[in-house]
Write a protein that binds this DNA or RNA. Structure first.
Lengths: 143, 143
DNA sequence: ATGTATGCAAAACATTTGCACCTGG
DNA sequence: CCAGGTGCAAATGTTTTGCATACAT
């Protein structure tokens, strides 16, 4: 049960928070990571009464608590994903926004080297590879 | 003379465009990459009469023409840098926003491998390492 | 009860667009 | 001269905030 996670983060266990956590857990996996608006729509569609502002507030709190990660890929909206602890980078399809996660130890190691040889104490890093995924590649022409 | 670049891109050689190009050329190098607002301020401060909208319009045209690259680092505003042809990635100081550019062939190679083994046709990629630079590290405490 | 969360509306930003006027070739 | 460029103001899209009400403990 993840209501524990909420309590641990000093956040009351409320319905909106539980619902948002649940959505992140279930519809997050291999497909799209979610925007605040996505989550808002899903909640509305499933009959919940919630405000977009609350979604943003909750996501921001979750981010501060280390429960979710906020990404700024291209295209205005930030996307959110549950922080499952295992760091990874992203492949983003520029056609359909499909996201594939990956980890590469060689790259991870190299990054640390680069940072320290530039005199930086690395705090974080983001590697995003943009491209056209297999699906979109085959189905020629689409928006 | 880079008025050539403008003509080549099908853009009239106007004062605002020249000025913006000049700013990108001179104050771009090792320090901060510039936001549209930065450029706007610099122009106003140097006595030019220009609108922020024009700065955005020009930068967008420059981007389309391949003259500049737009980056979406953390923190709202996009930053722009001249495209000098040599691809590179970025180390960003989270304290002072100083930017260091770097290239690592191993990482470049690995990225291609990762993309193709995931069935993606890579179109672009962005690697950003966030950290605290030497300067900020030493001068303990600062905003 | 009581301090925190929420919903709504309004504010705050970053960026884009419409339009009348100006300018480069 | 005339298409394209510019400034200004208004529109947009995203995220944040103020405030009165509702809820978890």
């Amino acid at each position: 049960m993840e209501s524990q996670d909420l309590k641990k983060a000093g956040l009351k266990v409320t319905l909106p928070r539980m619902k948002i956590l649940e959505i992140l857990e279930t519809s997050n996996a291999d497909t799209h990571h979610l925007t605040a608006e996505d989550i808002y729509r899903i909640l509305l569609d499933s009959g919940e009464e919630i405000g977009l502002a609350t979604v943003y507030r909750v996501l921001t709190q979750f981010e501060a608590a280390g429960l979710v990660i906020r990404h700024h890929f291209e295209g205005g909206q930030a996307v959110f994903e549950l922080d499952r602890g295992r760091h990874h980078d992203h492949l983003v399809c520029v056609k359909c926004s499909r996201i594939v996660e990956f980890v590469d130890d060689t790259i991870e190691r190299k990054q640390k080297e680069i940072a320290s040889s530039a005199g930086f104490k690395m705090t974080d890093h983001a590697l995003i590879i943009y491209g056209v995924c297999g699906n979109c590649e085959s189905s020629i022409e689409r928006r």
